[in-house]
Design a protein around this nucleic acid. Structure first.
Lengths: 201, 201
DNA sequence: GTCTATAGTGTGATAGAC
DNA sequence: GTCTATCACACTATAGAC
């Protein structure tokens, strides 16, 4: 499935990332994974101790990729609220769901500390990072100082994660977009300045 | 696991409901399900055509229960915004996640129309019902008429669903509560009347 | 209507040739 | 370092006794 110049380990990890995203940990079998990677079983057990070990490597890679993509939206140029909008309106493969968030519903990921840690760390990081931007927005007068920073950050994360769940349940990305739009309206409506005049874009 | 006066079909459906909630469809095997129900394999294949058929009955029952519980919060006495608060602050087994929402991340539920339909229908119903209450709130002057009804309803559903995901990922119900609190603050902050005086109790 | 026995396939891991 | 062969066990379903 990948080019011949790609290493075996690389093919294994990428296949695991894809299948964990599509089917989760309990829904992914070594057989299907190896077929997708185009390698034999021996290679996997040479480089990893087993399914869980390979999954851990794949989850850690996906977590790092997600952090990088999120930080690209939340950092850099633009006012704090403009960066929050950029994060919320970033292009996403909505119907595939969140590759990290979906693992929170996988019983074996939640039960295994090694598999769960990168999932927890990703959410802890995202909540902290969004909290920083919310706080910047308050200091810039773009959001009311009365909003609790941590609660507001949690609401933002929840809308994105819940948007994915709704979209997959209804089979349409429209419910995702609606949830994001609703949140943006609420954030804009809470401007200290009041009215509808100071949209951040 | 259930009393002897419970019928075999009842025990099968309840066990399936529990396991689908805990482990999803791909993570649930007939063997474990039958052990929990305390019945033999023959009974299950007498009353149902197989795992998928039993799962369909269990999902439909869970969907009906969820609708009933949600409507109990959203209907009845109280102002529209008070009912929204009651819905958002209802007691929930947060760390178990949403028994219907979690199925949106199950690849075989999403792929099978019979399994997926009750999941989709539940979200469609909830979005519609929340939309009605949001509209009532606008007519009562509790929420600004500028808010889009469907978007606001989608945001409310998303915060609950995303709150579950965060809580399971972080291992703490605090992130769920924070997301709910953040949403309530945003809804209150968007009061047409403006300030902080008119909280709905 | 319930049970146990059995079947065929897949799972996750190991052994050992090359 | 990669492969195929093989293992013990679990999965989902069927058969047939009671």
């Amino acid at each position: 499935m990948y080019t011949m110049t790609t290493t075996t380990v690389e093919r294994l990890v990428r296949s695991a990332q894809e299948l964990l995203w599509e089917r989760g940990y309990v829904g992914t079998s070594p057989k299907v994974l190896l077929e997708r990677a185009g390698v034999g079983q021996g290679s996997m057990y040479h480089h990893f101790t087993g399914k869980a070990d390979l999954a851990a490597a794949a989850i850690e890679r996906s977590a790092a990729e997600l952090r990088e993509a999120s930080d690209a939206s939340l950092s850099g140029q633009g006012s704090p609220v403009a960066r929050l909008r950029r994060y919320l309106l970033a292009r996403r493969e909505v119907l595939r769901g969140c590759r990290i968030g979906r693992l929170a519903y996988d019983p074996e990921v939640v039960a295994d500390h090694t598999l769960r840690a990168p999932v927890k760390d990703t959410f802890d990081w995202l909540l902290r990072r969004l909290g920083e931007v919310v706080e910047e927005a308050q200091q810039a007068g773009e959001l009311p100082a009365t909003l609790d920073v941590r609660s507001t950050a949690a609401t933002i994360v929840a809308v994105v994660q819940g948007g994915y769940v709704m979209a997959r349940a209804t089979g349409s990305s429209k419910s995702f977009s609606a949830a994001i739009d609703g949140l943006i309206s609420l954030l804009e409506g809470s401007h200290p300045g009041g009215g509808t005049s100071s949209g951040p874009a």
